[in-house]
Every structure is written in C-alpha cells, then in structure tokens.
C-alpha cells in the first residue's frame, strides 16, 4: 500500500521510547507523529532527537504520512530539533503553540536554510501548525496562509482552554468556538483541519460522540494519543456504504441533468443544489482516499 492521502488519524509516539516508536507503525493511523515535545523529559531531549532522526531516516514506514513534532518555537531545543528533523526528511514538521504568522515564516526560512546546507530538495517538507492558545485561534487564517509549506492546522484543546482560563470538559463546549475558528481558517486557506485530542483513552463512547462532532463540523481528521483510539476515529472519518451510495446517486443525477440540459435537477423529489453536490463530491473523495470501491 502506498502512502495515504488521508489524514483521519495522527497518532503521537514518544521520542523517548524506541518500543513506542517502533510499535506505533503497526496500528492503522494515517499519520504517525514522532514526538520530541511533551512526551519527552527535558533530560532526554538530546537522546530523543537522535533516536527520532535515525528511525525516521532509516526505518520510516512507507505507508504512512510521517511527521516530527519539534519543541516550541521559543524553547532552547528548537534549533537542534529543526537541524535533526529536516535531515531526517519526514513528510512534515509539526510546530507546537503557533500564535503568529511571522513565527511560521521564520521556521519555514530556517527549514529552507537547512535543506540547502544538507543538499536536500527545497520546499518538500510540509508544516502542520498546532493552534493551542486564544492568540493562535484568533490568528489562525494568517498562520494557515503564512507559507506555502503549511498544509494543516491542528487544534490543541488542553493548552487552548488553559490560555482562556476555561475548564476542559468531555462535552467540549469550551472549544466549540475555537473548533469553528480553526476550521473556517483552514477552509479559507485551503489547508487541512485536524481536530483536538479526546483525552480519556478509556472512554470509547465519549470518543465516538466527540469524533462524530469533529466530522459533522467538517474536520479532516483528529489527533489521537493512544493506539486504541485509532480505529474509532478512522471509522468516523470514513464514509459509510449508505453515504457513498447516496453521494453517487446525487452525482449521477447531476450528470444526467447536464446531459439533458436541465437547469434544475431533482433526486427522490428533492432539488439538488450546489452544496449537496459539493458534499457528495467530498464523500466520494474520502471514499477514494480510503481505497473503497463503489
């Protein structure tokens, strides 16, 4: 199987643990995030950086979209993290706690410098920006449009709610505005929108409700922190057979209407408008990406 175009799930694996990094590839996540940030103790940052570099460069899974999450832009580790991450050649580097477009520009320029020094193709490594504060949320559109390398924004709910002095709940009303803000910015910029982690890894029912909301809002995928969350989230972001059949009927009716020169097209007695056609095309694109034949 080739590398997936899907971004339904991005699973974090700690850069501090070889077994964690090596096992993570055997689950069904679309995107695997080798983490140098929160999951790595301060005293192990140097060793984790070398471990992630070697594993991504020499043992990367070929059927997944591979990311490296570096430490924060203002941390003492960012320069060395970028030196290692760029030379490891992941599909993308995930930048935590982005708040301003100029931060993204600086990181993108630094990546270009390292690519040139290392003799790597310039511009190939993409950027995901984590939006984890009210400032990041308010500036989401500028961040998404800051550099051509940016291909996704990912909402980080724990830090975002802390920045607001809000209480994080399973229902997630406190992040509803940020979800919409980030999603709208992503659509305006033409990048992918990745929803926040559902933190309780033992609450499958809660996760199912949360990911249903993510999908209904329009997100392209969700970050997960434990392998047991992967299949639930993948299933939610994969169109059902019923949804695919309906989408196909909508598009068939549209095509037939065009052939017959009709201005308005109906299906089962209801008029098909442009938004219905767009939703049907999205459903079939998701089915195609998931390798579902129809």
């Amino acid at each position: 199987m080739g590398k997936t175009a899907l971004k339904r799930t991005s699973l974090y694996a700690s850069g501090a643990s070889p077994v964690n990094l090596l096992q993570a590839r055997f689950y069904h996540e679309d995107c695997l995030v080798y983490d140098l940030e929160d999951s790595v103790p301060i005293a192990e940052k140097d060793a984790a950086r070398l471990l992630v570099y070697h594993l991504v460069k020499y043992q990367r899974p070929t059927d997944k979209y591979v990311l490296i999450r570096v430490n924060g832009i203002y941390s003492e580790f960012i320069d060395e993290d970028l030196e290692a991450a760029v030379r490891a050649c992941p599909d993308a580097i995930r930048i935590p706690k982005v708040e301003y477009a100029n931060e993204v520009k600086r990181i993108a320029e630094r990546i270009t410098e390292i690519e040139k020094k290392a003799g790597l193709p310039v511009g190939k490594i993409e950027l995901w920006c984590n939006i984890e504060s009210y400032l990041g949320a308010l500036n989401a559109r500028e961040i998404a449009e800051a550099d051509p390398r940016v291909v996704a924004l990912a909402l980080g709910a724990e830090d975002y709610t802390a920045s607001l002095r809000a209480t994080r709940t399973k229902e997630g009303l406190e992040i509803f505005y940020a979800r919409n803000l980030v999603l709208t910015a992503c659509r305006a910029a033409g990048v992918e929108a990745i929803d926040a982690v559902f933190s309780d890894i033992n609450d499958k029912e809660g996760l199912m409700k949360d990911v249903a909301l993510s999908k209904n809002l329009g997100f392209d995928g969700k970050t997960v922190v434990h392998p047991r969350q992967v299949d639930v989230v993948n299933a939610a972001f994969t169109p059902s057979a019923k949804e695919i059949r309906y989408a196909k009927r909508v598009l068939d009716a549209v095509e037939e209407g065009k052939r017959e020169g009709k201005g308005a097209v109906t299906l089962d007695g209801s008029m098909i408008d442009k938004p219905m056609e767009l939703r049907a095309r999205t459903t079939l694109a998701q089915a195609d990406a998931a390798g579902i034949a129809y």
């Binding site: 090596l22 060793a47 070398l50 570099y53 070697h54 594993l55 460069k57």
Partner: peptide, 12 residues
C-alpha cells in the same frame, strides 16, 4: 535494539 536505535543511543 535494532541497528538504528543502537546508532542513536551510542551517539547520544
């Protein structure tokens, strides 16, 4: 440990 883990740990 696989080869690249050994290389990473020795380097560190």
């Amino acid at each position: 440990a696989i080869d690249c883990v050994i290389r990473a740990r020795v380097s560190a």
